[in-house]
């Protein structure tokens, strides 16, 4: 390779590497702010601002969903395995909201209860045809629940 071109190649590589490191460091510094939601453990331990609109996310505890028969009020618990938070919400739930699946809730944490203004369903990474799903369920080897797959370790 011609020495002039070699020098330009090195300049290009330096631009890419230096800017990657710079942007990488910025993003590393902002990493906490880039999370879409807080896991229940952080909410329970008081790592979140109280009375300010935040987002929490976790697995809807099976059997915890209580729907009111008179209005759209609903109560459920979300968990990350270690801790759980009870959520109150009034409104329509997304179609994919289900016990044993993940949900992301936006609202305020007050007096030990998460009062949600918005509930979003987080679907899992599995795409399975209905027949296969039924066959798997029949054998009892049901591994399709998001909550066993999603990692809440950090």
């Amino acid at each position: 390779m011609h020495p002039v071109r070699k020098q330009r190649l090195i300049t290009v590589l330096v631009i890419v590497i230096a800017s990657s490191i710079a942007i990488g460091l910025i993003i590393y510094a902002l990493r906490g702010n880039l999370n879409a939601f807080y896991p229940p453990t952080k909410i329970v331990s008081g790592d979140v601002p109280i009375g300010v609109t935040i987002r929490g996310g976790g697995c809807v505890v099976p059997g915890s969903v209580e729907r009111s028969s008179a209005n759209l009020k609903v109560k459920f618990d979300i968990t990350d395995g270690a801790n759980s938070v009870s959520v109150k919400y009034e409104g329509l739930l997304p179609d994919l909201f289900e016990e044993g699946e993940a949900a992301v809730v936006t609202g305020k944490y007050m007096n030990g209860v998460f009062v949600a203004q918005e509930v979003l369903a987080k679907h899992d990474e599995n795409y399975v045809p209905i027949e296969v799903k039924e066959a798997v369920a029949a054998t009892g080897a049901d591994h399709q629940k998001t909550c066993e797959v999603v990692k809440y370790d950090s």
């Binding site: 879409a36 679907h123 899992d124 990474e125």
Partner: peptide
């Protein structure tokens, strides 16, 4: 890297 609404890689 982050908690996101997108599912983990399929």
């Amino acid at each position: 890297w982050w908690y996101s609404l997108h599912q983990p890689a399929t």
